[in-house]
Design a protein around this nucleic acid. Structure first.
Lengths: 160, 160
DNA sequence: TTGAAAATCACCCTAAAGTATGAAGGCTGA
DNA sequence: TCAGCCTTCATACTTTAGGGTGATTTTCAA
């Protein structure tokens, strides 16, 4: 009996459908009585039934077939080491200018201040000034520390 | 055929409903025969149409509703970036000694020669000697270049 | 247009890094 | 045992890096 109760409580739509069916049949009966005298009414009646019950079938199928979407989770290896993106937030946070970043980049490539100056077409003193500001912002004392921290923070790309 | 089997096994309630419907119709028929004296051929015909077209509707709905599959790609960090392995072959090829590698490591961490000397309990001059040999073996002129190349060759770990 | 930030450069000085050379002690395999 | 390498240290010197200060020009947004 528990199975039946379970069925009745859980499939409300089915019961409702049953009632609907009963009402529908009564209605059809009434219609039949109304138009049975008219000979041509039979085709219309049959057609109506066909259409209505086709619709009902579709509705039922859609209602009862709940899981229409299937989720598939796929694990993908991400090569973070390949796609390097500079950490712009850190650059902004540390208030590092474009030129300073440029100097930092060349510095990390192992260039001397003189070489950086030549590369950027400025004087050695200019590079020294940039360095001083850079070290201040990065809170370091040496260029090697600056490079280390800059790579850790993602300000400049790793050596690969 | 697999689809049909699937349908039969998974949508038990639909089948039950079908049976319920049949029983209902029989009951109605019986009631009709009992209390109404009319030609019952038409009712059977209408019921048949109803059942057939309900089935047709269900079939149509199931046929047209293809199960949507949503693919979720889940990113997983690759092991490569986590586990660093030193390139021993390169170390042997370049004939770099243990002590030199040690100095190189500390150098890459941004320590000054003086700091490295203190860390290793040796004199500043000793570190300078190690550096000179290191630069010769790595074919570089500055510590920053040494660090750059050493990281590229995998002699020392990356900054992360 | 004007003010702040960025970029440029100079000078002076100190600190650190790098070069060259020589030398001594320890470890190891032939 | 002994040659060869590693490690250590020293001295002297040159080069590069870094600190501090001040100044000018450029750029850019309010």
């Amino acid at each position: 009996m528990r199975r039946s109760t379970n069925f009745l409580t859980k499939n409300k739509s089915v019961i409702l459908y049953g009632l609907f069916l009963a009402i529908m049949l009564c209605l059809l009966k009434w219609l039949e009585l109304r138009f049975i005298v008219i000979n041509h009414a039979f085709e219309i009646y049959a057609g109506s039934i066909a259409v209505i019950f086709t619709g009902l079938g579709i509705w039922l199928a859609l209602k009862l077939t709940k899981p229409k979407t299937i989720l598939i989770e796929k694990e993908v290896l991400s090569e973070k080491s390949e796609t390097f993106v500079i950490n712009e937030k850190e650059i902004i946070r540390l208030n590092i200018s474009k030129r300073e970043l440029e100097v930092l980049q060349l510095m990390s490539e192992g260039l001397s201040n003189q070489e950086i100056a030549e590369r950027l077409f400025v004087s050695l003193n200019t590079i020294k000034t940039h360095n001083a500001r850079l070290f201040g912002k990065l809170e370091v004392k040496r260029r090697t520390q600056a490079i280390e921290i800059a790579k850790k923070l993602g300000l400049i790309p790793q050596s690969r």
